[in-house]
Design a protein around this nucleic acid. Sequence first.
RNA 1: UAAGUAAAUCGCCUUAUCGCUGUCACGCCAUUGGCGUGAUGGAGGAAAGUCCGAACACCAUAGUGCAGUCAUAGUGGUUAAUGGCCACCAGCCGUGAGGCUAGGAAAAGUGCAACAGAAAGUAUGUACAGGUAAUGCUGUAGUGAAAUCAGGUAAACUCUAUGAGGUGCAAUGUCAUGUAUACCAACGUUUGAGUGCGGCACGUGCGAUUGUUGGAGGGUAGGCAGCUAGAGUGUAUUGGUAACAAUGCAUCCAGAUAAAUGAUAAGGAUUUUCUUUUUAGAAUUCUUUUCUAAAAAGAAAAGUACAGAAUUCGGCUUAUAGAUUUGCUUACUUA
Length: 128
Amino acid sequence: MGLTYSNKEKLKSKKLIDQLFSEGRSVSAYPLRMVFLKTIHDDTNLITKAGVSVSKKHFKKAVDRNRIKRLLREVYRLNKSAYFNNITTQYALMILYIGKDKPTYVEVEHSMNKLFDRFVEMESKKNS
RNA sequence: UAAGUAAAUCGCCUUAUCGCUGUCACGCCAUUGGCGUGAUGGAGGAAAGUCCGAACACCAUAGUGCAGUCAUAGUGGUUAAUGGCCACCAGCCGUGAGGCUAGGAAAAGUGCAACAGAAAGUAUGUACAGGUAAUGCUGUAGUGAAAUCAGGUAAACUCUAUGAGGUGCAAUGUCAUGUAUACCAACGUUUGAGUGCGGCACGUGCGAUUGUUGGAGGGUAGGCAGCUAGAGUGUAUUGGUAACAAUGCAUCCAGAUAAAUGAUAAGGAUUUUCUUUUUAGAAUUCUUUUCUAAAAAGAAAAGUACAGAAUUCGGCUUAUAGAUUUGCUUACUUA
């Protein structure tokens, strides 16, 4: 798993997203919140399929939403290998930005690391 | 030089590393297709609001008249079209350059009108004068923009003229996994309900039900088309006061779909502030010092707006840090 985030790794299926929100569990580290669900992808090499989302309620301008989503994607791309390379189960993820202010790159990176720490902890506990 | 006014243009840049997405070429795996490598494209002047006008698509629709609803409203031109744009006229505002205009009709009717005034539409009081059989019957004074004489107002109803089907690319077309299955065919199964032949039984045919296969329908997930070469862009010439048009040459310039066009680092540009130096002017009794303006150098921090394509065009409206250019006006200075 490299530093890529190509089309395949994006969560695109409407069905899967609906399922994720209705059945998935969540973990949060303000201003981020992640909904996740164990699934089986068609491609066995793939570990995760991930999407990002920003509330239209808090950010009315499309420019702001785009900016935040790009940051989230970028941080996910650069940091995911550290956490998900050791995992064999397949997941569908959706990362939500629930804050109300525009973040910087460093802030997002910091809180996403925190988020993933909690996620890994939660899952290892459950498995053991 | 300052202030103003009109119009036009630009609206951060470069490099490195790591990524996203379209297209093309090659290679590999290979059924559609997938992967890799390389090359090359990848947000705006408003992409925004969705306010007008079109293209395109589907639905509706015999023709005509009347009524209603909505829109438009000087004249001429321009355009695919418009309620846009251009020119001119008129009115109003401004010293001026210029700006603004919802600029058809008040003798079809209805309504409305501050203050003043007796009275503003159901009119008619006072004083004086005139007049009559009698009466506000007549005149003057007084109020007001306007007094039995009418006027103003149609971003009040109204009238006149002209125009107008509806819904929007989540339109629409097409391929179709899976699931359930109206229907048809073949084969098989069964307590075989029911039923034809027959007086009855046997027998035999049809056959509810159920299973398999095939056909056909339906159209969900999803894919493809629509989907970007167009009333295109740049430039030159010609015609026209102009909007705009014609012709020649050159050119291809985003197509995503939980939605690409980014992130990080370094450097630069620009604006603001401060310091120093120089020059000019002013204040002060002189050196000094202080203030103002300009230029150069340095430093520091802060700022670099508004804002993100979603079928495509032509407009309008609104938002916008900062920068540039041109025409003109007014004031001042110098010659």
